[in-house]
Design a protein around this nucleic acid. Structure first.
Lengths: 218, 218
DNA sequence: AAAATTTCGATAATATAATATCGAAATGAA
DNA sequence: TTCATTTCGATATTATATTATCGAAATTTT
């Protein structure tokens, strides 16, 4: 009798590992798949500047088959496995609230489809924007937000309003039954546990940068 | 003789702690400082939904004075300390490369000044953009990038070009003597060790979101 | 056929980060 | 003045994530 998982190897990916997945995916998709049926973790690691063993571990979790020694992993299968793992194969609908510069940039961004995201509609408080279309997506007034979310069958809310308005918008999204929020406003949102918040606060990254430069200066 | 740091308490902040700093700063600045000369770590933690002890530890590292039991930390001093810690008190100049939707959004963003960042100029390959001004910042042709960086006394490069062009732009920035790069392109850049890269890849966050939703669906 | 090489998976060791617990100092109330 | 409460700092524990090491399988070279 063989022991299946002797030293409790991870069966799920860490948060950080999930973040690495899009990089793997992009790299694999850019390969010439006619020439490269197989790819080694070592090669991936070298190209992405990741640690080799880390790549091997990440792939072990998502991959349906194991890699062949001296050969590597089957590229096509890996791509399918990663896309499936991240849920890219079943598209999620989202609404975007706040049609400012950043909001418009996101509305116009091509590439979200590849990531399994479809922005169904946009919302703003500015009446001169309401009714307009941006990249084929209609802009509604925010007061309709909570009502329209269920009707649009939306599960993700994207917040690109100024910080002071963010909590209010967030509450409306939660009321609308959204299950995950992508927050670009520089605030910490209060939210029920069942809803996931992903903050994209540029001040965070900037803090890392300026801190680093400050130390260089010394 | 008193032992200074018996159980090697951290003298520096973790990356994650640095990322929390902007939230502390924002919270403290929004306080009515006339009424609140002091603030407790407990109150900050409750407002930001952070763990109390974590806040205390973070503040202990940046704060020049320790908190008073039953009272808390002096607000004004904390603000000064955090700003100094992050280097917000000495402004860094940056250039932005790639004046698409996202690039324009960043060029127009007010608030960077508060974070010690000044975007000195923008660059693009599109000749119809070159020579124009966006939010008071002139757009130059990318071929001038490496040359102008030293002249503008720039230490940060912001990359908002499409992924395929990112590495080339990055190389020019490094050639221009930039010390830190803020990369919004969804690629892993190859860079000398001395230069810091901060990736702002939306695919990363999106992976977390879609993964989470996929699990909910089951 | 034997030896060298690449790559794998498994395990171990380390580093980073978050959470929990506890005694002591400062304040306010009994 | 004594006692309860809030908040602190220090220490301990646990969780998360990365890096290192090693033997074994598949392939190529000698």
């Amino acid at each position: 009798m063989k022991i299946e998982n002797p030293a409790k190897l991870p069966l799920t990916l860490s948060q950080q590992a999930i973040r690495r997945m899009p990089y793997y995916l992009k790299y694999l998709k850019n390969l010439d798949r006619e020439r490269n049926k197989y790819i080694s973790a070592s090669a991936i690691a070298a190209s992405l500047s990741f640690y080799e063993v880390l790549v091997r571990k990440d792939l072990a979790v998502v991959s349906s088959v194991s890699g062949k020694p001296r050969v590597g992993f089957a590229v096509e299968e890996l791509i399918t496995d990663i896309e499936h793992y991240l849920g890219y194969d079943c598209v999620d609908s989202a609404v975007l609230v706040g049609v400012g510069h950043l909001g418009q940039a996101l509305l116009c961004y091509r590439g979200f489809e590849d990531y399994g995201l479809d922005i169904a509609a946009a919302f703003d408080i500015d009446k001169s924007l309401v009714g307009r279309e941006i990249n084929g997506k209609e802009v509604f007034h925010v007061e309709k937000l909570a009502n329209l979310c269920p009707r649009l069958n939306v599960r993700i809310g994207i917040i690109t309003v100024p910080a002071p308005a963010a909590q209010e918008v967030c509450d409306a999204l939660v009321e609308g039954g959204v299950m995950a929020i992508w927050n670009f406003a520089p605030t910490q949102l209060k939210i029920p546990d069942k809803v996931l918040v992903q903050n994209e606060n540029m001040a965070e990254s900037l803090a890392i940068l300026t801190k680093h430069l400050m130390e260089k200066r010394r």
